[in-house]
Design a protein around this nucleic acid. Sequence first.
DNA 1: AATCGAGTTTCAAATAATGAAACTCAACGG
DNA 2: CCGTTGAGTTTCATTATTTGAAACTCGATT
Lengths: 291, 291
Amino acid sequence: MASRIPLPWQPIRAAGSGFPTVDETMDGGTVGKALEVLEHVARLGRPVRFSELQAASPFPKATLYRLVRTLSGRGMLSFDPERKTYQLGMRLVGLAHTAWEQSSLAPIARPHIESLSRAVRETVHLAQLDSAHVLYVDKMNAESPVAMYSEAGKIGPAYCTGVGKVMLAHLEEPALSAMLAQQSFHRFTDTTIVTEYDLRDELAAIRARGYAVDREEHERGIICVAAPILSLGRSVLGGLSVTGATSRTDLDALLALTPQLRKASEAIAGEAVAWRFPEEAAVAPPPDGRT
Amino acid sequence: MASRIPLPWQPIRAAGSGFPTVDETMDGGTVGKALEVLEHVARLGRPVRFSELQAASPFPKATLYRLVRTLSGRGMLSFDPERKTYQLGMRLVGLAHTAWEQSSLAPIARPHIESLSRAVRETVHLAQLDSAHVLYVDKMNAESPVAMYSEAGKIGPAYCTGVGKVMLAHLEEPALSAMLAQQSFHRFTDTTIVTEYDLRDELAAIRARGYAVDREEHERGIICVAAPILSLGRSVLGGLSVTGATSRTDLDALLALTPQLRKASEAIAGEAVAWRFPEEAAVAPPPDGRT
DNA sequence: AATCGAGTTTCAAATAATGAAACTCAACGG
DNA sequence: CCGTTGAGTTTCATTATTTGAAACTCGATT
């Protein structure tokens, strides 16, 4: 997890919504400002005083004040009157639960992730792209199978994780450049890819190969192999990975698991597509019939 | 989970924010409207078309249109262009993760919940009040210890669950009446308490006794005992419960676990208080020194 | 007791939201 | 094949909300 120090106000790059279709003219509406406040509090990741927000935000005191008041009144922020601090409200946890269940990927993938992690006896992650970053939406640890918020909901970099790279690799060009422009290219370890140029090379190789490898690029001692979850039209629905620690396993061992990984990701893709397009799924070639 | 059928637009009762202090004059700001849309989509719990929203909402077409557009652009909603449907966006999952971690209760309680569930060999729930309803913020199942979004984030009724009743029981009067007014009093089973009058009786008994019991009031076959998590000032931070199925256990067996349950809830309270008020915690009487 | 500063409220001016109606376009039926 | 339908989208003058400078409150500090 990148540790930027000053953590400036960010007007939020748009591009969200999972599908790259909504036109990107999102801007200075009042609602947008309120959501920027929310995201800023999230970025800080700790209780913040009003004055901290006000120093970081471009909004005048009174404006910001009413924004946080409204957000608090709706439970999106929670205000601690003793400490005079704001933090993200638990209402978000309820909303996220619904979002997760509504998702056309995570609930469907759950059983596949469970069986895959049991079969390979390693940790399995399911991720989606969210604003050019990796959003982990599910996790199954083979050893102590306790998942919960420990990982799901976590956001990580795309350019130096297995799932991130494999999802980027399967994007088409207008979208890809937009995503690459948002990577920080922070050097986490000595194998981290830190230039867009090198990353594009790597992505081409990944696309040709069909899976990605993380050679301790994000965290020393952590390696993984990742496969994409693709729709019939080959658009990226998500990414699936098997992660291991160098202390217990090595890359060759993980690579030996790619057939199982790929089988799981294709099964998930098939079900996700069937769920969303019951008609087409019956007609179109199954996603494992690679060309 | 109450199953209202027509599911009308609800202007949202305020009262959120965890602490009952923010004054409740939250209203027709544009931001509030946007959040109402978000909550309405959450209530429906499935992908919805624009026209469905527009039929249910009091806003004119163009207004609603720009609201959903803005929310989509920020990833709070996700729009499926094929289906022309909106659903809650995965951005919420990322925000919820941060909200959970920032919370002064859930992360602290985690280890206690784990050890309690292992000790009693039953399912343990941690909940907080959110808008007069029960928000489950953590769960540990002793058997198959897989938790995740399966339960965390779920919202349930307060008047007919163990955690709900035990939290209500320890509220002070202005807040309590506000909460009771928001209960649906739907009869789930034949033991469900369905009048405010009876509930107030039950709450008084619970308060006197220090723990609550759910005698299949919400779901047939499911019973539980619940203890409150109280701050030094005796305000309600959350609720902790041990749940069992009548097919495998009975109320007497669960009641025998109350000492352990109470010990865990007091330990959580102590740590939560210590975390929030490092100074006071050292001075004030420990929360288990009941008067 | 006076000062300081974070947090809160006020109000005319500026701006953004509104909502009726017109428009687009794909699906459907004659 | 063309006209109709209706969901979804855009426009624009009107209207209402947001804005932001400044004044105020009140607890904490000197």
